[in-house]
């Protein structure tokens, strides 16, 4: 039986990362990757123009209690 998703993943790994993994070996790997990508698609809302990683670190400091900032 051929699994189209893992077959693609197997080709991808071989071509771009030099890893030789069979469909069977990639079953859980492909499923895990899929679940991660699904989580991203559920949280992504606005465009990348409005967001960058440094906003996260700024917000961490903004949210710190005033007593810690003194």
């Amino acid at each position: 039986m051929e699994n189209k998703n893992t077959n693609n993943a197997s080709s991808w790994l071989k071509r771009f990362n030099s890893l030789e993994r069979t469909e069977d070996q990639l079953f859980h790997t492909a499923n895990t990757t899929q679940s991660f990508c699904d989580a991203v698609s559920r949280t992504a809302t606005d465009t990348m123009f409005e967001r960058e990683p440094s906003q996260f670190f700024s917000l961490l400091h903004e949210l710190a209690p005033e007593s810690v900032k003194k």
């Binding site: 990757t33 991660f36 990508c37 991203v40 990348m48 990683p53 906003q55 996260f56």
Partner: peptide
């Protein structure tokens, strides 16, 4: 799974944190 992760999805995860 890290080998299969599209770069754009990783960036979404990083940029979505704030």
């Amino acid at each position: 799974p890290g080998f299969l992760m599209p770069a754009i999805q990783y960036l979404e995860a990083l940029n979505g944190r704030a």
